[in-house]
Design a protein around this nucleic acid. Structure first.
Lengths: 155, 155
DNA sequence: TCATACTAAGTGTATATGCACTTATTCATG
DNA sequence: CATGAATAAGTGCATATACACTTAGTATGA
């Protein structure tokens, strides 16, 4: 006989592609990112940057570590993602008052203006994906995604 | 009155965070990637590399552009993602026969061995996420993700 | 108080992602 | 067949992601 059942044969690999959670989530993530990038392009802001701006705006001035936790993002990733937005003046990172180690992130007026420009484009994108999936299916998927985060995130 | 309804107020931004498709998909993608990275660590291979190996194995020798299409990935991204796997001898990129421009990707024996090592760890990760979500919910989500790809991908 | 543990953040390195541009080959059409 | 259009792939640049390590403050306890 050959190997002990020829580990990793073709059909097996094809089935893995259809059932693998990380592969399919990342694939969908790439696809949806491309859609939103296309739709947001006229505003000159990337989808990741738009969502980061929105998050900071929604959570008020917030320390980097806390923000990273909320975003399920490595703190050092967040630090670097803040850079282009800070460079473009859309948000500012200021020293924390109580704790001299911490630094707090804050959306600037320019950032708010930028959000105002991007928001209708974001709404168009949302409408597009919502129309394609249907209201209930999209809401359901958002729930499922939350469950994935709960299940997967290592606290 | 202030602005024409104070575009981008706090509550609005909080609601965006809960309903934004790209934000929540990317967040879940980060979370699940971290889980699989953790679980696959003993094999010394990253989740993205594992899924790429599986894809190439499942599709047989395949040209870069075709593979990129299948993975809903920019061709140039794929080109660079192949590099570490090629460097480590897990796959090879060889000139296409019919078309001298094309190059075909192929898993090596070493790559197949590596897949054999990673596969049980991947199964553990799959079991974990499947148990957390439940069979039907996970299958449903995979369907929904396919629908997102269909809806979002610009062909 | 002072030494030690803990915590917040930054940096080095590596991979992942994609756009704009370029190069090389193939195809189609006059 | 020759030339221009189309296609396959690579490179430069920028952003996104995270681990390992470092630095600088804070808190704890003998």
């Amino acid at each position: 006989m050959k190997n002990k059942k020829s580990i990793c044969d073709l059909e097996q690999c094809q089935e893995i592609g259809q059932t693998c959670a990380v592969f399919n989530l990342r694939k969908a993530s790439r696809a949806i990112t491309q859609l939103y990038e296309e739709m947001l392009r006229p505003s000159g802001i990337l989808p990741t940057q738009f969502t980061l701006l929105v998050a900071v705006r929604g959570m008020g001035p917030i320390a980097i570590s806390k923000l990273a936790d909320q975003l399920v993002m490595d703190r050092t990733t967040l630090t670097r993602n803040l850079k282009p937005l800070e460079r473009d003046g859309l948000l500012r990172v200021i020293p924390g008052m109580q704790d001299q180690r911490s630094r707090e992130v804050k959306v600037t007026q320019k950032g708010i203006n930028q959000l105002g420009i991007a928001l209708p484009l974001w709404r168009d994108a949302q409408r597009k994906i919502r129309k394609a999936l249907g209201d209930s299916r999209l809401d359901r998927m958002l729930d499922d995604l939350s469950a994935v985060v709960e299940a997967a995130y290592i606290h």
